[in-house]
Nucleic acid binder design. Sequence first.
DNA 1: GAACAATTTCCTGATT
DNA 2: CAATCAGGAAATTGTT
Length: 236
Amino acid sequence: MYHPQAMPLPSHLPEDPPPSTSQALLTEICPASIPWDHSEFGYETNDMDLPFLACLASPSYSALASDTCSMADKSTDEGAPQFTELLATVTTYRRNLAQQVSQEKTMSLITVGDTSISGESKSQRVPRESSRQRKTGQGVHLWEFVRDLLLHPQKDREAVRWENRKEGTFRVIRSDTFARLWGEQKKNKCMNYEKLSRALRHYYKSGILEKVGGRLTYKFGRKAHGWSDEPLQKVT
DNA sequence: GAACAATTTCCTGATT
DNA sequence: CAATCAGGAAATTGTT
């Protein structure tokens, strides 16, 4: 369950994004007023993401999403067509907005940290990320998501906490919340801690994470960056 | 369409 | 017993 209460879907989504503020767009897309601010998705948002993310965060989206859990279930679930339709509509809207924004200015993300990848694959990763984010919204790597969660803890949704900031060790406070947040990020409501932890364990091999003894405890490796006290890089 | 990266999904077995 | 950890293996998704 993402939210305890279900609300009706927003009845319409505008085809042509009006030249207004993000907050105005949000209001237009999600008329049902919900508590919302940047910090909700503080780890990485940009203007064109706001309305989309807002819908993801809205009870109406969650009510639908909670009906379409597993990939296998989606084919037979009654909520799937509605859900797919909503996603398609929002995606179209988002693409239109992206085009508009790109005409006005360079697509500079409002990031909370350096989201590029270090190491040998950096040259491939960096230019790829912005276009990937623009098109799919899946540009944030898991370890970056975790890092940003640690650097910008969300009140009432704290999932991870520093164990030893200097050493880069952190602990999962609530595994279910942790998985739910990552699932929201990836628009995958079937995410759970089992799968999330498997993804984290893949990082051991690449040196992004290191094994530590304690349960639910991880440590950033030498390939991870941006988690220490070093000044965060801001894109202007 | 192929190759590739980064997960995601599933699974078995071990440990706490 | 449930939750978590460890990895192998295959599948999926999006990018180049």
